[in-house]
Design a protein around this nucleic acid. Structure first.
Lengths: 339, 339
DNA sequence: TACAAAATCGAAAACGTTTTCGGTAAAATC
DNA sequence: GATTTTACCGAAAACGTTTTCGATTTTGTA
């Protein structure tokens, strides 16, 4: 009934626990014969090292923590998948927590993960996070920390990101190139760096093309939902009937807008062109299909873990951790919502 | 630099480690005065118990494992969210693994979780899983196991499910009630119980209404994707132009079919009525909006953890675990894809 | 004051592993 | 045959906590 331990094997073989432990780890100071003997018995007894004991002894658990603002979200769940798949390959397990876009929760969860003594932490910040003490705590404890997507530039750790500003510029430029003269922007809340950068890219593109930036054309939402897209579409028709192009912060909202425009007989892209952001798989399914920026979620997850893994290895070898910024490529996916 | 331990506190206060430990846990055999003293010092030194040591000593980690076939999936990510939110409330952490619908992987992952000595396991089976030894291993080790959604009836553990057969019956009956005479069915692979049950519900509804069941109207897919829906829609038009109703195993495929029908000028629901399954949030966004069966993912996750938690508690008290089947209610959500 | 009862504390074992260090026996060298 | 080297093994400490059980002190009772 009880799980078998090193002691059990040792007694069976009439040798010491030490030798058993060493034999299983192929220490050179145990003879090939006893090594074979031990391994065979371990096999037949189905010996599994007690992870708790190993953890205590080695002060590592081969487990990392992952804090994400929202799990039910195509982009983030892709990231999770990327992280888990990569972690599994390297023998790491992933504990997932969801911050619900709340700074308070995020802080508590960092504490929780630290008290559980995970080996490292991956995090995408909540929108509200403006104070970084909890993140610096992680770094001060010498635990590897990697941020991705929603990051804080001021925290000195590795980051995996895309160039939101550049991507937004590309999107807006595409609207301009296809003849749009008055371009609105649906954006996310004020805080997360992504929303800011995408906005700045939008603004820069306008200015570089000699178009005046009109703040009244920028609509800000708190929660990205389908319904917000519908609502903003109605608002645009009412408040700014002259708008002929919209760059939307995220596909889901863009698709909400498209369906609302469809209902009201607004022709896309003839009357209004729309560019989204993310390349959610539904974007190619909707009619008209949505021109958008491809944001590689799975890849981002993979890279985030890879970087964390490097730092975990460095730490094991007592080498210093040098933070690294990894920027993933994005691309414009042209579809039917633009000319 | 080193994290503070019980020993540190004990030395500071000139008392024993035993007393410190007991004070922090409010043992009655340590005076109120020293209890207060210890707690205060623990606070100021920011003492956090070493989880590894606690795990080893208590043989529990307050961590559970979760194996899911696919993370990037609206229903499953909702379930995950339900599980995590509930687990967090009860002080449990969740390690997530993805089986990728592979029996082999699933087996390995069960082993992995057992060797990591999680307190319990939640699982939704891979489509290919037909052998249940790995699951019975978990039960034999005395670890609580709860299956949800994709379950194996033959395994003697708790399960959280919906009545797929009844729900499918309801969906098909609705098509019949609204005048459909020739009803096709798009279904999932042969193995998972859900696909079987939904098919059986479909068939039973036909028979109960005196309609002959025609096997050629049942289309089977391996992977549920948007594209499969498009493809099957084309097939229906070519092979069975007389079909006037379709019950689709899952919303995503149904939406693929709808967009394909839209493109070909097939009127929904006038020419063909469609009922989906899941109540994915996009189902209300598509045009026409999709009539579907509401499948409560978040709720299912919550209930699955709650049941596991009960069993974890029972185990702590050395009480026997009595497997329980929890059936969640589903409902028909009528929208514009049916008359 | 004497004794029993209650309150308070701590020594020590235990959980299972890893790793250091020293010891013995066998092999190699002279 | 004596000495050094090598090969092999094990005792013991350590990781930090929990819990049992006995010891001591204090309080209460007669």
């Amino acid at each position: 009934m009880k799980p078998v331990t090193l002691k059990d094997i040792a007694e069976h073989l009439g040798i010491s626990v030490t030798t058993v432990s060493k034999a299983l780890k192929d220490y050179p100071d145990v003879s090939k014969k006893t090594r074979a003997l031990v391994k065979e018995l371990a096999q037949t007894l189905n010996y599994k090292p007690n992870a708790f004991a190993v953890n205590l002894r080695t002060e590592t658990s081969n487990t990392i923590g992952l804090i994400i603002p929202e799990i039910v979200h195509h982009f983030f769940s892709s990231v999770i998948k990327g992280i888990i798949s990569q972690a599994e390959k390297k023998g790491y397990l992933v504990i997932i927590l969801q911050s619900n876009e709340s700074y308070e929760l995020e802080k508590k969860q960092i504490d929780l993960l630290l008290s559980k003594r995970v080996d490292g932490i991956l995090i995408s910040l909540a929108n509200g996070t403006a104070d970084f003490k909890h993140l610096n705590d992680v770094i001060e404890q010498g635990k590897p920390l990697v941020m991705f997507d929603k990051i804080a530039k001021l925290v000195n750790c590795s980051k995996v990101i895309i160039d939101d500003r550049k991507a937004a510029y590309m999107a807006t430029q595409h609207l301009i190139d296809t003849g749009c003269k008055r371009i609105a922007h649906f954006r996310g809340p004020l805080l997360p760096q992504n929303a800011i950068d995408r906005f700045l890219g939008y603004k820069k593109a306008l200015e570089d093309n000699g178009m005046t930036y009109d703040p009244s054309l920028v609509y800000i939402f708190d929660h990205m939902t389908f319904e917000v897209g519908e609502m903003f579409a109605r608002k645009i028709l009412r408040e700014h009937p002259d708008v002929d192009g919209i760059f939307v912060n995220t596909d889901l909202v863009a698709i909400g807008a498209i369906t609302e425009f469809n209902k009201n007989g607004v022709k896309i892209p003839e009357d209004i062109s729309i560019v989204g952001f993310s390349n959610w798989f539904m974007s190619s399914a909707i009619t008209p299909s949505l021109t958008t920026i491809d944001q590689p979620g799975f890849e981002m997850g993979k890279m985030a873990f890879k970087q964390l893994f490097k730092e975990l290895k460095a730490k094991k070898k007592k080498k210093p951790i040098v933070p690294k910024i990894i920027e993933l490529e994005t691309s414009l996916v042209k579809r039917d919502s633009t000319k």
